[in-house]
Computed example of a mutant assay.
Amino acid sequence: MNISFTASRHPKKKPEDHELSFGTRFTDHMLLMDYSLEKGWHDLRIVPYDNFSLPPSTTVFHYGQAIFEGLKAYRRKDNQIQLFRAKDNFDRFNRSARRMCIPEIERDSVLDALKELIRIEEDWVPSSHGTSLYIRPTIIATDPFLGIRASHTYLFFTILSPVGAYYPEGFNPVKIWVTSEYVRAVPGGVGEAKTAGNYAASLYASEKAQKEGYTQVLWLDGKEHRYIEEVGSMNIFFVINNTIVTPELNGSILSGVTRNTVIQVARKNGLSVSEKRISIDEICEAHEKGELSEAFGSGTAAVISPVGTIRYKDHILTIKNGVAGPISTMLFDEITGIQYGEKEDSFQWTEII
């Protein structure tokens, strides 16, 4: 598929690395592509970053037929730029598309276009450790139609954002609040798809948690409200009796690319990993017995985020005296070392642009 390019006539001032937060600044250009029943996916183009003009009747506004991904590009010490597990992210993007009745994209063509976009925006990729270029591919339904059915037209777009740390705490442990009142996803639903509605469903409980001084919500299963699923922006891991335990994928938990990265890196370093159904009561019991030594989340945005406090009803679990543990620290160092090209990538996850 040919890629056309229209250069921005009004380039923006690029921020200094120390000015970066997460997801507030955007580069000069974006990637677009259209879909129709007659043409399929077509008109792949790089254009200036700008607003969209859509009718008030556009399907995505009313029925939430939208998917997205999150991945990153990193500047290495040798000044080359590399992607991390981009093919895996776009494979998951297509799985989300299937679940949401959205036509799949041709992965390799879109990846080639993304690489070209990053080459054009090369100066936007920050260089300090802990910074990166966040990549947000998205598809929205664009039919101007109020009937409930899958749209016949779609817009694919990808925007880029130079970012710093996702959490203000950085790598310092965060506090998470367990809700047994609200649910994010249920069996048979769309919890494993990276679709907009999943995140809208999480906002109310997240607001309550933040008012109580907690960074994120830890969700329980939607049926029994007992079994741990995931945190709002991360998959979750616990270290119990020297085994890393994480909830097994069950159709309502997002299959995190970083989750899979953690599991593979941990096993390569000789650590035991168990993917299983685990209840919040088991976590409380392990903490009471002194068997819970660490907890941490994993995700593209934060990579590894140690958890220092978990609140569940009247239980407040302080883990590792509120400091990062050796396993989460090792995993963070190993994974970011691969992402920045500082450690050998024996998994072949990276690709220099």
Rank of each mutant, 00 (worst) to 15 (best):
T179A: 10
T215D: 15
L218G: 04
P306N: 08
R92I: 01
T158E: 07
G191C: 02
Q339H: 10
M330S: 11
L32C: 08
R136C: 10
P56V: 09
I102M: 01
V186Q: 13
S4Y: 02
Y227S: 08
T336P: 03
I280L: 12
Q82I: 03
G232S: 15
A301F: 00
Y182A: 02
Y340N: 02
F93D: 00
S132G: 07
S274I: 09
I244M: 03
Y204H: 15
S305Y: 07
E69Q: 08
D221G: 05
Y167W: 04
E212G: 12
T153I: 05
S202M: 09
E229I: 01
A73S: 11
A141F: 07
L20Q: 01
F26P: 00
A209L: 05
H42K: 06
E248R: 10
Q210K: 14
T309Y: 09
S233N: 12
P55E: 11
E291D: 15
F26K: 00
S328E: 04
R76K: 10
A165D: 12
V60K: 10
L54R: 03
C284L: 12
Y74T: 00
T336F: 08
L71T: 15
Q216P: 07
I102C: 01
E230D: 09
V60F: 15
H18C: 13
L220K: 05
I263L: 07
N235V: 05
I135D: 01
P247V: 08
G290C: 13
E351K: 15
F22N: 01
I120N: 12
L83G: 03
H42N: 13
E344L: 15
V217M: 06
